[in-house]
Structure formats: structure tokens, C-alpha cells
Design a protein around this nucleic acid. Sequence first.
DNA 1: GTCTATAGGCCGATAGAC
DNA 2: GTCTATCGGCCTATAGAC
Lengths: 209, 209
Amino acid sequence: MSQPQPIGDNGRDAIIAAAADCFMEAGYDSTSIDAVADRLNATKGRVYHYYRSKAELFYDVYRRGMVINLSTIQPIVERDLEPREKLETMSKAHVRNMLDHLNFQRVVMQGVEMHLAGATTPAQRQQLASLMKERERYEGLFRQVLVEGRQHGVFRFDNASFASKAVLAILNNPVLWYRRRQDAAHDGHEEIVEEFTRYAMNCVAATQT
Amino acid sequence: MSQPQPIGDNGRDAIIAAAADCFMEAGYDSTSIDAVADRLNATKGRVYHYYRSKAELFYDVYRRGMVINLSTIQPIVERDLEPREKLETMSKAHVRNMLDHLNFQRVVMQGVEMHLAGATTPAQRQQLASLMKERERYEGLFRQVLVEGRQHGVFRFDNASFASKAVLAILNNPVLWYRRRQDAAHDGHEEIVEEFTRYAMNCVAATQT
DNA sequence: GTCTATAGGCCGATAGAC
DNA sequence: GTCTATCGGCCTATAGAC
């Protein structure tokens, strides 16, 4: 208690990180608790000491992913920027998060899939629903900027909900195909960030840039 | 042999349709062969008579989904249309397919996820890789129109591969949240088709419409 | 707090009757 | 061609030693 633990140093954080990698590489269903434990050079006794079930572990990984995203975007929303510049800054930061935290972002995607598929037990359903609310809140941050920009005449669209979905569909896309490169100096991140941000901006732009 | 069987009437087609519904509702891993058989009012002996494994059944469902998409879009590609009109026609048809064949389209999405996750056995890997080629061919039809339009100065983008991914990311998006409505007369399809097509067009447009 | 050992259930796949 | 019956493996979760 004398010092705060750095992230990744206490029991749970190491498990969350290992689980994120496993879920990314094999998917939720195909990841066994043994596999997560193996990655920690431990056995599943350790995992079950911190988590009551595999589902709870998954939820924690998902939540960590959303915390990364929200804590990046929220401060940008609060800055006093003109709508176009604000959306552009948010978009670039979002794509960077996708590329920098692929493991967590793939887990977030799997959470959406699980929600679509419909979890079996009522308890799981409820848990997933609350996770989806976090995601909707995140989408709301984008929707809010879009509506503001439409009032200023710099964005154009009919249905704000559809527009925010379209923008995020573009910005999330790299998660579906990007693979980490060995050479960190030439990871190609900036080209992806620039280009997908431009597509996202264009799709709701009222005036050509 | 005297008459061709209508789709959905021979043994395999009924199984494919039942499996598509199950995979949509529960996901690949959580769908048991018993569940597919139940939906057919049969037992799994029937399924295993036509398919050697659950994976093969999945591949067939996926293929059916891609056949739906390719057979819709290919004829449009071959028509003699100006690039902007061609892309618009393709986009609308694509979104309609997403809404009209949700079950198969969700399976196609799951196939992409499985590919990302990395199938376990070498045989599965190879099968999935060949399915992904179909998908890339489909994306290529869009890329081709985009490049043609860029030459005519009606589209603008740097990387044609990224541009086609961005366009399809938008057009696929409804699969992630759309749910069938009871009232077929007011299914809301046309609003979704119009709006997401417009976003897709805008994101690569060289001139404002 | 981390381990070993094992219970217990589910499901893919097969064998063989009809 | 469809059924019933069952094997065998895998994996979640728990019990209890250290």
C-alpha cells in the first residue's frame, strides 16, 4: 500500500495481458485457461485465484481495452477545438490505439461478436450488455462531435447514429487485417493513420478538402 | 436427375440453411451439431451423412455466402457504366445482400475472425486460406472500379487497397447491428441502403455531390 | 498465493441397426 | 439415408496440499 503498483506488475494485470494475447491469437472459445497460465509460466490455479471464471477474465480484458480508448478520446473531446479539427484529432488517436493495442482491440471486437451471438446464461447476458453500454458511450463521443459539426455546417449526414457507425467502421477496419511488423521503425502506422482518418473525414464532410 | 432441384430442397441445402441460422445465433464454437440437427427436426446422423466434420459444414455455409455476394456484384461490374454510377449500384446491391441474407453474412464475418485467430490444424489453415481468397477476389471487384474512377478523376485516394477496405468497412457495417424486424413492409432497409451507400461514395469522392 | 489432482459435463465423431 | 448408442477427448472449475 505504500506505493501504487505500476500497470502490469500486480497479479491481475499480468493475467489480463496474457489473456489479451491468447484471446487475440486463438479467440475466446479456443483459448483454454491452461493456455493463459502457460503464457504466464504458471498453472491455472493462479488464474482461478484472481478470477472466478473464464468469462469474468474476458470481461476484464474487454474493459481494459475500453479504458484505453476512452481515456485517450475523452480529453480530446473536452478540448476547445473547431469540430473538423476535433474529429480529425480523435480519429487519428483512435486508429493509433487500434494499431498500438491490437490484442485488446481484437478482444473488444470479439465482445461485439459475442453480444451478437447472444450469450447463453442470463448472468452473462447482463454482463455483456453492460460492456456494450461502454462501447455505446464511446460511440456517443464521436456522434456528439458530428452533430456539433453539422450545426456549424462543416459535416453533412442525415442520421447521426448511422454516421457515427460509418466513421467508426472505417477507423476500426485496420484491426481486421493489420499484423505487427518486426521492424518497429518502419511499422507503417502513420500511413494507415493518415489514410483511414481521411476516409472517415470525407465520408461526413460537407465541403471538399 | 429429370429436374434440377430448387435450392433448399436437396439434402445439403437444408443443412446449410439450418447451419447458417445456428452459426448466426450462437457462433461457430457454441453451435453443436446436435443443434443444427434439431433445427432440421433430425439427428446428427443426418448431418454427418453429408459432412465429414463441423468445419466442412462451416466452409460450405461460408462459400454459399460468398456465392450470393459474387453473383450479385459480378454482373454489375460487367455492365458498361460510368465509374461513379457503377460503384453506387454495386454498393447498394451489397448492402441489400447484407440485410437480406444476414445469417450467411454473419458467417462470412466469423470466417474472417477465424482466419485472424488462426485455425489449429494445417488442413484447416489451408481451407480457410482458400476461402479468404474468394473474399479478396470480391474486394478486388470494388478496387477495380475505384482505380478506374480515379483515372477518370471522379475518385480520389492514395492506396487503392486501403480505399477498397474503407468502402467495404462501411457497407458491411449493418451486419454488426441490424436485426430483422417483424413487419416486412417497414423493414427500414431502404434508408440503410441509401445512407451507407452515400457514406461509402463520399469517402472516396473527388468532387462533392 | 500457487501448486497438483481430479471431478464432471459437453460435444465431435464413429459404429452399426433399420 | 436416417436413426440410436456410445466412445473418447478436452476443458472449466473445484478441492485441498504446501
